[in-house]
């Protein structure tokens, strides 16, 4: 079960780590730097699941989720939000924006995989 994952984060370090964690788990990782870039990547690949950071330049995570959800062909892709806060408020906001779940940074690779399983098999 190799998932194709699109990971969107403006921090290079975070992208590197997601890439490492995902590829070590046998997943295929596609990386994007911000919401706009994420949408560009979505035009070319069809990921099984999307992971996105919230606070990003140009288009933040909420804007990105909104854009993904409003496109019919992408509206069913599970989206996990990366957040450093586990505050309930933020989760509620993520959910209201259309996210499927969340991963609290810094993430543990095992938990990341588990979260991916919970939303995408």
């Amino acid at each position: 079960m190799s998932l194709e994952v699109l990971a969107v984060d403006d921090s290079r370090t975070m992208r590197d780590m997601l890439n490492l964690a995902l590829s070590s788990a046998g997943f295929t990782a596609h990386l994007a730097e911000d919401g706009i870039h994420g949408l560009e990547v979505l035009e070319d690949i069809e990921p099984d699941v999307i992971i996105t950071d919230i606070n990003m330049p140009r288009m933040d995570g909420f804007g990105f989720i909104d854009a993904v959800r409003s496109e019919d062909k992408w509206s069913r892709i599970p989206i996990l939000v990366l957040t450093t806060e586990s505050a309930d408020e933020l989760k509620a906001k993520a959910r209201a924006a259309g996210a499927t779940g969340w991963i609290v940074k810094p993430f543990d690779p095992a938990k990341l995989v588990k979260a991916l399983q919970m939303v995408a098999g």
């Binding site: 990547v41 035009e43 854009a67 062909k73």
Partner: peptide, 28 residues
Amino acid sequence: SPAPVKSSATTTSEGTTPTKTTGTPTQP
């Protein structure tokens, strides 16, 4: 997931309509 005719939802704002760029999209 049939490719639907673009609904009004897809044209909500400039930002949601991705601009295509050349190059490898998966590489920052």
